[in-house]
Amino acid sequence: MVQVPMEVRVLSMSVNPKTLTVALVCMLLVLSSCKDRTRQPVVAQPAARPTPVPAETFVGQPEPDEPILQETDDASDGALLGSRRTEMKDDDERNPLRKIHFEYDKDRITDEAKAALSANAAYLKQNSYTYIRIEGHCDERGSIEYNQALGDRRANAAKKYLSALGVDPVRVDSISFGEDRPVSFDQNEYAWAQNRRAEFRILSE
């Protein structure tokens, strides 16, 4: 803590209304006594204007209309998901693998999810060269960072269940999108229930 200079303490004294009234009266008196059209200031001595210290220089910044980072789209090559160019369309109708849903803040595999996972496992056993990626998702409520971890756990719970049904985990990659890839942007129980899910994407067959 720096010592507050003396004049600051003086300055921080409050102005009370009585002082103000006195000041008003004094000022009116002073002003009425200068009716001689000389337009003199109330007090002849203005405060000194010292020369400021040498200038601090502000360096230029990039023009504001472009992103600061020079990122090329090439950086996203090879990515199956997550980049604008290569992101898969939502191909629910053609995807032979069923998505599963979760309860709020849970990664428990529900009975309904078990049925879907059994069907998915059967498909993967028939198509033994199929590699998949499980995407874990959350609804928008709660911490983004916690939801990233929860999505991860949901994907892993699904992966573990498939593994227990005999699907080699080597064929199963997983990723979490947290709350950032919702199927519905609505804010109601139905939308949230739809968004709490794991999806199964075929990477290669």
Partner: peptide, 22 residues
Amino acid sequence: HLYDAKQKTYIIGKSYRGRKHA
């Protein structure tokens, strides 16, 4: 420039130079 109205004194002053957006 920062002035103290009560003491009628100059408190601090700084000079800055830079591009308009700064």
